[in-house]
C-alpha cells in the first residue's frame, strides 16, 4: 500500500485549480452530467417509485390501473409467511456458493495465467471466453448437458459408476446445477479483474521479500494477498449484488424449480407478477429484496472503512 500512496497523491484530484477556489457557481458540470442523471431518474428512479407505490396496492396484472391501496398488507403477509423467508434463504445460499466459488476459481485462474507457460495465450483465451457467451446460449448448452436421458453429465456419472441424477429435475440437485452454470459464466470476470490487479503488483515488492528469504507461500501471504484484498473486496461486492438480482440464468434453467429449490427473490417477484398476476405482492417482494441488497452494501462499506483505517494505522 505504501508504494501506492505517492502516485495517488500526485494524481490531481477533482479539485479545480486553486485560483478558482473562490467557487463561482458554474453550470458546466451540470450540463455534462445532467443528461445521464435525468436519464436514470426517468428509467430507474421513476419506475422504482412506481414499484414502491404498487407494493402498497392489490393491483392485478390484467387490470394494472385498477388497484386499491391496502397499506402494509402485502408486507405483513410476506413477513408472516414461510415462503418469503424460504426465497430469502435460497437467495443467500445461491449467492454464497456463487460468490465463494467464482472468487476462488477466478483467483486461482488469474495466478495460473499470470506466469509464463507453453500454450498460455490459448489457455487464457479459452478461460475468458465463457464471459462472452450470451446467457441464453449458456442456458441451452447446460440444459442439454444436464438432460436426464441424453445429457453428458449423466453419461459421465454413469461411467464413473455413480448412476444417474436428475440434475434439473431433482430438488436436491437443482441448486447445485444452477450454481455450476452461473460460476462457469461469471468466473472469467473475476479472473480478468484479479489478473489486472496482479499485474500492477510492483516488482520490487516481490524482490524485497525474496531478498528477505521468504518462500513462495509466505510471499503470497505477506505481499500479494494484502495487495489483492481491496480488489477482491470490490469484486466480492459486485458478485454479491449481481447474484442477488440475477434472473435470466436461473429462470431459463429451472424456472425456480424443481419444487422451488431455486426460487430466489427475483424469481419469486417474476412468478408473482406474471404467473399469479399479483403485481402488488411482486412489488413488495422486490422492495424487501432491495432492502437486503442495501444491507449487504452497507456492511461492505463498513468493512471497507475499517480496513482503510487499519491500513492507515499500519502505514
Amino acid at each position: 500500500m505504501t508504494t501506492h500512496a505517492p502516485t495517488r497523491d500526485r494524481i490531481p484530484t477533482a479539485d479545480p485549480p486553486p485560483r478558482n477556489k473562490r467557487r463561482r457557481f458554474s453550470w458546466t458540470p451540470y450540463l455534462f452530467i445532467g443528461l445521464a442523471v435525468l436519464y436514470l431518474v426517468l428509467f430507474a428512479v421513476v419506475p422504482l417509485l412506481k414499484g414502491l407505490d404498487l407494493s402498497f396496492t392489490d393491483t392485478r396484472l390484467l387490470n394494472p390501473t385498477g388497484g386499491t391501496y391496502i397499506g402494509f398488507e402485502n408486507y405483513e403477509r410476506l413477513l408472516g409467511s414461510g415462503a418469503f423467508f424460504k426465497s430469502v434463504l435460497t437467495t443467500l445460499v445461491y449467492t454464497a456458493f456463487t460468490v465463494v466459488a467464482s472468487l476462488t476459481l477466478g483467483t486461482i485462474s488469474a495466478f495460473v495465467i499470470n506466469r509464463k507457460f507453453p500454450g498460455r495465450t490459448l489457455a487464457r483465451a479459452v478461460m475468458v471466453m465463457p464471459w462472452a457467451v450470451p446467457t441464453v446460449a449458456v442456458v441451452l448448452v447446460f440444459r442439454w448437458i444436464y438432460n436426464d436421458s441424453s445429457g453428458v453429465a449423466n453419461a459421465a456419472t454413469t461411467a464413473l459408476g455413480l448412476g444417474e441424477r436428475g440434475w434439473l429435475t431433482d430438488p436436491d440437485y437443482g441448486m447445485f446445477s444452477v450454481v455450476v452454470a452461473t460460476v462457469w459464466k461469471v468466473t472469467p470476470f473475476v479472473m480478468l479483474v484479479v489478473l489486472a490487479a496482479l499485474q500492477s503488483v510492483p516488482e520490487d515488492l516481490y524482490e524485497a521479500t525474496r531478498v528477505d528469504g521468504a518462500g513462495s507461500y509466505s510471499t503470497f501471504k505477506l505481499v500479494v494477498l494484502p495487495f489483492l484484498m481491496p480488489t477482491l473486496r470490490v469484486v466480492g461486492l459486485l458478485m454479491t449484488i449481481w447474484s442477488f438480482r440475477r434472473f435470466e440464468i436461473i429462470w431459463l434453467l429451472t424456472g425456480g424449480g424443481p419444487v422451488d429449490a431455486t426460487t430466489t427473490i427475483v424469481i419469486d417477484v417474476y412468478r408473482q407478477a406474471f404467473n399469479n398476476s399479483q403485481l402488488g405482492v411482486a412489488a413488495a417482494i422486490g422492495m424487501l429484496g432491495l432492502v437486503l441488497s442495501l444491507i449487504v452494501t452497507a456492511i461492505y462499506f463498513v468493512l471497507e472503512l475499517r480496513a482503510n483505517k487499519q491500513n492507515g494505522a499500519n502505514a
Binding site: A44, L48, G51, I241, R245, V266, Y270, A283, L294
Partner: peptide, 12 residues
C-alpha cells in the same frame, strides 16, 4: 442502479 433487479422494474 447496480442493485436494482430488472425483475422488479419490468412491471413499472
Amino acid at each position: 442502479t447496480q442493485m436494482l433487479p430488472e425483475a422488479l422494474l419490468v412491471v413499472p
